[in-house]
Design a protein around this nucleic acid. Sequence first.
DNA 1: ATTACTAGCTGTCGAGTAA
DNA 2: TTTACTCGACAGCTAGTAA
Lengths: 237, 237
Amino acid sequence: MNKQISAKRVKPYLWFSLYALLENGAASKPVRISTVELSKILGGSQQSASRHLQLLEEMGLINRSITPEGGLVRITDCGIAALTEILNGLKRNLEEDRTESIEFQGVVTSGLFEGAYYISKEGYRRQIIEKLGFDPYPGTLNLKLRREDLKKRKDLESLLGVTIQGFKDEERSFGSVRCYPSLINDQVEGGIIIADRTIYDESVLEIISPIYLRKHFSLKDGDKLKVLAFGYNRKEK
Amino acid sequence: MNKQISAKRVKPYLWFSLYALLENGAASKPVRISTVELSKILGGSQQSASRHLQLLEEMGLINRSITPEGGLVRITDCGIAALTEILNGLKRNLEEDRTESIEFQGVVTSGLFEGAYYISKEGYRRQIIEKLGFDPYPGTLNLKLRREDLKKRKDLESLLGVTIQGFKDEERSFGSVRCYPSLINDQVEGGIIIADRTIYDESVLEIISPIYLRKHFSLKDGDKLKVLAFGYNRKEK
DNA sequence: ATTACTAGCTGTCGAGTAA
DNA sequence: TTTACTCGACAGCTAGTAA
């Protein structure tokens, strides 16, 4: 992903051309589409379709390789971002409040063993009991996500979770974190913790649970684990 | 909702103006917004914003009442439809496969007592046992939805459910139906049946369950019932 | 068959301005 | 302050055509 082009910077007519490509499956894989075909879809001329493709490519929103049988077009990550921006805007404003679940898979890794310190703070613990409905084991399990699940983490963060308020004790202050109720390996309840200012990289999920997960599932570093997280769309009415 | 204007007929630049209005909360309630304010949001001139509003109104996508303090703008059902069309397109193509839950509330009504006939057909029963995981009580419960839940029914239908295939017996043929696994009154598992060619009006949900719900909850016609239905976004990858 | 250039047309934009 | 008109400028469109 190069320079991020906000969807707002993409002119409306080009955005709709990009959308037409999306509708024709150019998101995940390159798609064979001629300028004549695209013009039919857009309801314009072949010349305009051609120009749109040139401009979209120039802006880095699509990749193409042109052959005599028609161009091979694929939307870039940057293009997907421009589309997703509008998707999120529409969802925010049009969708009812619903719960959604997102499934993650990853492998167990060792963290910095700081989790225990934070979780055992009464300020956090009390809220977890109250809002998540369980008394957390004093420690967190770190899950390194598969590459293909990185995008899902962003999806999860775009959902509403349970907010655990920050607080102060004698020594220092602790920031707010969000928590998404989760089901671990289809079996154990728990939660995913997302700190608003995280010290972890985005490919690691921090998991809490009422029980000691490493022991319960006999987990060693590198073992696979599945986590099903729940969040809400935000309500706007 | 008058003549249905497909989002495809709305010119890109007008669609984006409509989207800007949505982002500013003009979906559910009228919103006070002057042409100067709108022009700032759109990054254009006051004159263009004014023209866009005129055109959107002409097309029936918004309603306005103009006052000296700035116009009061509300997006019409038709306008919402034009926005939703794009939302659904984006969702279909960008979203991962996730389960979503939708909650319905309604009151128990008497149906035509045909449910028992259909459910007891082995062709349906076997599939329900296999795909839903329970042996259905031979009958359906009809739930008359609240007005505000009618839209949710469409949301539910836009999700993927479990398909119960049609079949033939000696006498006649039976059509396919879709079923959405559900939780009734937070307690009993069951499913919502949506026939592809329904004889019921859209404000009535047909519910199946392994138990006789009327007896279990001591239900009389007019009693309230809550149903939480689960469906999947369609996968496109 | 393709894509994409040039030329000329059309429609959108925005400054000025009226109501 | 508003909204919205007129009209000159030009962005984006299409037809014709080249490669």
